[in-house]
Design a protein around this nucleic acid. Structure first.
Lengths: 169, 169
DNA sequence: CTAATTGTTCAATTCAATATGAACAAAGCA
DNA sequence: TGCTTTGTTCATATTGAATTGAACAATTAG
C-alpha cells in the first residue's frame, strides 16, 4: 500500500503551510529545533493521527529528524500515540496534545527546571568562593551580588507554578 | 596610558570566571548570544564600571562583539552608562542594571512582545483562510484549532504583566 | 593639517546546533 | 531461514547565527 488511495497528498496545502510556519516561529522563540515546530504544527492541523512516514513524506524531512523530533515531543508530553486504531496495525500514529496546560507543564519540566537546578548548584559554589575572599570590603560586595543572584533564582522558582496555573485555563 | 598602573588584570580570576559562566548559561536559555552573557556577567561582578576596551581585553572578545553586545544590553535596559566620572573622560563606562524587574521588563518588551504580536497577525490571517474552506465538517475542525491558537495567544498576553509583577520584588 | 583615541559597521569567517542518511535493530510473516 | 516493514542511532554534512577584524566615522589633541 505505497500509494494511499485518496488521502495524504505529498505537499502541504496553503493552510497547513501557514500553520506549520506559525509553530516553526513559536518553537524558535522557545529555543527548540525547527523540525519540532514542523512536526507538531502538522499534527495540530490534521484531523487524523499521522505516522512517522506521513511526516517524512509531507514535510520533506529525514526519517532521523522525524524520529528524534517525535521523541522530544513525546518527552514534552506534546504528542501521544493514537491508540484507537485496529490491532492489526503495527505502524504507530501520533496525535497532538492540544491543552496549553499540558504543553507548558512539559516545557517547564523538561527545559526550565533542569536549568534552574544547575543554576542553583553553580550559585551555591559561587557563594563559597565569595566567602573565601580576603578583603572585607570586596567580600561584602561580592556576597551582595551573589545573594542577589540567589534571590533571582528563588523568584524564578516561585513563578513557575503560578505560570502553570494561569496558563492552565 | 596603555598599561593601567594597578587594576584590571587581563585574565579573569576564578570567581569572575564562575560568574561569567553562570550568565553565559543563563542567556543561552533565553536564546541570546554568548557574548551578551559574558559582558553582562563581568559587569555584574565588577565593583567599578568597565569600558568597551576593558571588556575586549578581559573577555578576549572582539571590539565588534563588545560594541554589538553593549548595544543589545542597552536596548534591553540591562546596562547603563556610568555617569559619575570626571567630565574630562571621553571614554564611556558601563554598569549593570541589577534589578530583576528591569531585566525581565526589558526582555519581555524586546524579545517576547514582538513575537507575540507577529503571531497574532499570522493567526488572524489563518482564521481567514480557515473560513474559506468548503467542506463544513473540515471547516469546523479547522476553526476550532485556530480558535484554540488564538486562545493560547490571549493567555500568553495575559501572563506577561503578572510575570513582571511577581518578578519585580 | 596629521596623529591618536574611541567606537561602529558590515562582509567574511567560524562554529555549534540541527538535519541527514546509511547502517543497524526489532518484529512480523512466508 | 530470509524478506519486509517500521523505527532508531549516530557519524557526517549542512546551515544559520555569532564572531571576527578591517575599514570606516567621529572626536580630541598637538
Amino acid at each position: 500500500m505505497h500509494f494511499p488511495p485518496d488521502g495524504s497528498p505529498h505537499e502541504l496545502d496553503p493552510l497547513e503551510r501557514q500553520v506549520v510556519a506559525v509553530f516553526v516561529d513559536g518553537v524558535r522563540v522557545l529555543g527548540l529545533p525547527r523540525s519540532i515546530g514542523e512536526i507538531y504544527g502538522l499534527l495540530f492541523i490534521c484531523r487524523t493521527p499521522l505516522s512517522l512516514d506521513d511526516l517524512v513524506l509531507r514535510l520533506n524531512i529525514s526519517k532521523g529528524s522525524a524520529s528524534q523530533g517525535l521523541r522530544m515531543l513525546k518527552s514534552l508530553g506534546a504528542v501521544r500515540e493514537a491508540n484507537g486504531n485496529s490491532g492489526a496495525e503495527r505502524r504507530t500514529y501520533y496525535e497532538p496534545a492540544v491543552e496549553l496546560k499540558r504543553l507548558v507543564g512539559g516545557f517547564i519540566r523538561e527545559q526550565i527546571r533542569p536549568h534552574l537546578e544547575s543554576g542553583r548548584t553553580k550559585i551555591n559554589r559561587l557563594a563559597a568562593t565569595a566567602c573565601a575572599i580576603e578583603d572585607p570590603e570586596h567580600r561584602k560586595f561580592l556576597s551582595d551580588r551573589v545573594e542577589r543572584l540567589d534571590q533571582w533564582m528563588r523568584s524564578s522558582g516561585k513563578v513557575l507554578p503560578i505560570l502553570q496555573k494561569i496558563l492552565g485555563q
